[in-house]
Design a protein around this nucleic acid. Structure first.
Lengths: 343, 343
DNA sequence: CTGTTAGCGCCTTCAG
DNA sequence: CTGAAGGCGCTAACAG
């Protein structure tokens, strides 16, 4: 059992008072270039020396209690074992560190119940703010965060009735790019494989897809959209592929990387020649796209920009709030363009 | 700025003392089926009602300070945007929640400097224990954790000189299985692509590979091992593949999923027919393996068992330590078998 | 069954 | 430039 060293121990050892130790430890240089506290160089060095010798570790619980701050933020994501969210988590981690914060990460599995429980847990840990990917049906929790004035930024999706800052990709525009790529390949009978989840990113992609189809003279776009569930059952991809093939589909947009992998495998097993018998364009990176000739193009979201912007906003809100401001009402929306990539 | 409700507010509102409120909030039922504190049902309900009405949120900083516990553990991993570690992180998250803990996750990028800085940050946040994937060269930090008696479990790798509990896959055995699969396919000239990092998992796989080769009559196994760096440069895979092909390689073990994807892509671009001109067996899951016929077999590590065992041990150590025990010296080692999977 | 009280470690005014 | 002292919110003796 390690006995924890406190500033008291240091004070005794250095022959000064606890407050002096505290002064030394927090002697940041203010905006005016002057030090916050005036301590003689002599005692400063002595205290520092003792602290190092005793291997002093400040107790954050005490500091948190005293200052009402934790320097922790929370990221509430869909599932960090999915590479898309794993990358987001990783980038947010680096950004948090750069701002002197620590990042808590929670997965919701697109379940509003889990979403709520992650948020409550993090709130109990006194996170100072959130970056969230809201699950479908989590309105109540989001409203709570908004009403409570907890600094929160929504990414990846938008929430029409929610007045919080929002950073996303322009999904309708992205779909138009994907669709155009298929047309250019000469695809005549284009289908889409989407998610059943009613979240804005997916809905926007579907909306744009339907519009594109109509512009190509298709009257019933809905008949060209197949949907898989988030926790994909093993038989789903095969069933969908059979339906697509029966309909003579020769061009396919897939709305996300997870279903893309499954659909591509199902096609592969049926000996369908990908990028020959059927042209595919997908959303979000997967390492399988490069294994075809030509490679499967995909829409790349500017995750670096998105995470960057989101964390900038969040840290700004946190500052604002700590300065006593009311942040409710801050609800700017930032939309970035996706890029069609072909490896 | 939300005014925080404290037990004091509740006490005033409910007309009782703060301690009674505290009793009510912490009135867990002990192992003996009896409550820890005796509070009349009447006041209990009244307090609970007021707490709910005022939307009371306990202040964890104060609680942490008082009890010296945070109910937070840290996972120090290589890079959570890699699916292998992302899955581990995700499973550890669920296990932590199940034990009433919250998980902090940090990435090291296999850099001992980052490793150290993540550990220090988490220590400052008063984590109660660690599950770590040690980077090569992080001995100093690990020694510190060991000496300080911080509950720590090492996974994925082992550290010969370190006396902390360890949960890993039997990598030598796994390599034997992988090698046997290649022999069975009739491969005559077998190579290995490995990582340059000197971490035990990789070393063990290389050792077993060399042994297998020698048993097949190859005198210079080292000449059959190519190594890529962790932050793989774009040209590396192509250069390695060219070397393999020049040597007439017809069987290949790849020591990890990340290089596997790159090597497979490089072979693909050179029109080498995978599982025909050259047989591949890999380690750890990737979704590209299933896109070949037959699928590329791979060694699957029992991550669920490993994370489960590791967290069981960790929570046990934490309990022990909180009961005043000295946990230094606990250094059991648990080794699980990998499985050769072919989709 | 209920109330009083003493800190947990730290920061920060207020005096000297 | 330095020291003393109060208190952040909560828990756990200790009294009643």
């Amino acid at each position: 059992m390690t006995k924890h060293i406190t500033i008291k121990d240091i004070a005794r050892e250095a022959g000064v008072s606890v407050s002096l130790v505290s002064f030394v430890m927090n002697n940041r240089i203010g905006a005016d270039g002057k030090r916050k506290y005036r301590v003689s160089e002599d005692t400063r060095l002595r205290v520092l020396e003792v602290a190092r010798r005793l291997n002093y570790q400040p107790n954050s619980a005490a500091r948190n209690l005293r200052q009402g701050r934790t320097h922790v933020i929370g990221a509430v994501l869909s599932d960090m074992s999915n590479i898309f969210y794993g990358s987001i988590a990783r980038q947010l981690e680096d950004l948090a560190i750069a701002h002197g914060f620590t990042l808590l990460i929670g997965s919701t599995d697109e379940d509003p119940g889990k979403f709520d429980s992650v948020v409550r847990t993090f709130l109990e840990k006194d996170v100072e703010g959130f970056i969230v990917v809201p699950a479908a049906g989590c309105d109540e929790t989001m409203n709570y965060l908004q009403d409570a004035g907890v600094p929160t930024v929504v990414i990846d999706r938008h929430f029409p009735y929610l007045r919080v800052p929002n950073v996303i990709t322009d999904n309708e525009d992205a779909m138009e790019k994907a669709f155009a790529a298929l047309l250019q390949q000469g695809a005549k009978r284009i289908h889409m494989v989407s998610y059943g989840m009613r979240i804005s990113s997916i809905i926007d992609r579907e909306t744009a897809f339907a519009r594109c189809l109509r512009q190509s003279g298709v009257e019933d776009p809905e008949g060209r959209i197949s949907r898989v569930s988030f926790d994909m059952k093993p038989e789903e991809p095969g069933q969908i592929v059979d339906r697509l093939l029966a309909d003579g589909c020769d061009g396919l947009v897939i709305a996300s990387n997870m279903p893309a992998v499954s659909i591509i495998k199902a096609l592969f097993r049926r000996k369908v020649r990908i990028q020959k018998d059927i042209w595919i364009v997908s959303f979000d990176y997967s390492n399988v796209y490069g294994l075809f000739d030509p490679a499967i193009p995909y829409i790349q979201q500017p995750l670096a920009e998105i995470t960057r912007k989101a964390s900038d906003i969040l840290f700004h809100l946190i500052e604002l709030r700590n300065a006593g401001g009311d942040i409710r009402g801050e609800n700017a929306r930032y939309v970035y363009e996706g890029t069609l990539i072909q490896e």
